[in-house]
């Protein structure tokens, strides 16, 4: 019953994403074709072709219907800059982004939750002050600036552009090492900023639990301090923290866009940058729908995971 509700809610959200993607690019004051081809030599024929592609000559509900049905078929239109189907371009760039975002998220969640727990448990200790201070500062740092700084400071130690060198031997090990080498700086950048948020979330979540009476019960039973923390406090505090981590997945997405831009990492983020400098509306629309859709799905997963972890929430 609840599971059906959750799935239904996610489905509604996905439709809302599609609607949003449609209307966001129809609020353009003036002719989108003109602004899209601004500063480029275009013939009247090309403009007419674009207009037909957008379907701007047809009434709005017809436009939406054809957009929506093609979306269901996985057709996101054709990119203006790449002159290829948007879905194809996006699929190509998915791998590198998953690698970068995946690596960074795993490290950031692990590190962030661990540091947050430590800091909260010894509240106002030197460790807590240092961790909180660093986290607050990192939270204030724009991701792209941190990337640029790292690049400048490390010099030639790490490659700073792209995902692999052209002259690397084609065998798997050399290729993997090369990608790993390229991955170092972008992941550090992404981890630093995202991790700061997780530290603060985990810390405040555990602080909320610190006064819970069941911790007094655990102490009265004769449990060691670290057992009280591991067995009783953390399992409770981690639940809201995980939900928040997933809720703020948009933060990771935002970080990925600027990080990939700075390091020319050939993923969706860099594609975003290319699309907006165009501007390539079909590509942007496709990217918006895909990322927003992914976030909605991530949230559904977080909800389900929460249901599995927290006995108070019954999902099925």
């Amino acid at each position: 019953m609840r599971l059906a509700g959750r799935l239904g809610g996610a489905a509604v959200s996905l439709v809302m994403v599609a609607v949003l993607g449609f209307f966001l690019f129809r609020v353009v004051p003036g002719d989108p074709v003109v602004s899209m081809t601004r500063g480029r030599p275009t013939t009247a024929a090309m403009q007419a072709e674009l207009r037909a592609q957008f379907g701007l000559d047809r009434p709005l509900h017809e436009q939406f219907w054809s957009y929506f049905t093609s979306l269901l078929r996985g057709d996101l239109g054709t990119s203006f800059t790449f002159r290829r189907p948007v879905a194809e371009v996006i699929a190509e760039r998915l791998g590198p982004t998953l690698l970068l975002v995946g690596t960074a998220t795993v490290i950031a969640v692990g590190l962030g939750l661990w540091l947050g727990v430590r800091a909260a448990w010894r509240r106002d200790s030197a460790f807590d002050r240092a961790t909180t201070g660093v986290s607050l500062t990192l939270w204030a740092v724009p991701t792209f600036w941190l990337g640029m700084l790292l690049m400048m400071v490390t010099g030639d130690l790490f490659p700073s552009r792209g995902m692999r060198d052209t002259d690397t031997a084609p065998d798997f090990v050399s290729q993997a090492l090369d990608v790993g080498h390229h991955l170092v700086l972008p992941s550090i950048t992404l981890v630093a900023v995202v991790c700061a948020e997780y530290v603060l979330v985990m810390r405040s979540s555990l602080l909320e639990e610190m006064h819970a009476p069941y911790l007094v019960t655990a102490r009265a039973k004769g449990l060691r301090d670290d057992l009280v923390r591991r067995r009783h406090a953390v399992p409770n505090a981690v639940l809201p923290a995980i939900t928040l981590v997933f809720l703020r997945f948009g933060l990771v997405v935002a970080g990925a866009i600027t990080t990939e831009t700075v390091f020319s990492w050939p993923g969706l983020g860099l594609l975003f940058y290319d699309a907006l400098t165009g501007p390539d509306y079909f590509l942007l629309q496709g990217l918006l729908v895909v990322t927003a859709g992914a976030v909605v799905v991530m949230n559904l997963l977080a909800d389900l995971l929460h249901g599995v972890l927290d006995p108070r929430v019954k999902v099925v």
Partner: peptide, 17 residues
């Protein structure tokens, strides 16, 4: 709340003057 705000902001500032 769950949508990435920056992505939306980027889209908005691309389409508006």
């Amino acid at each position: 709340l769950v949508l990435p705000a920056l992505v939306l902001a980027i889209a908005l500032s691309t389409v508006l003057p």
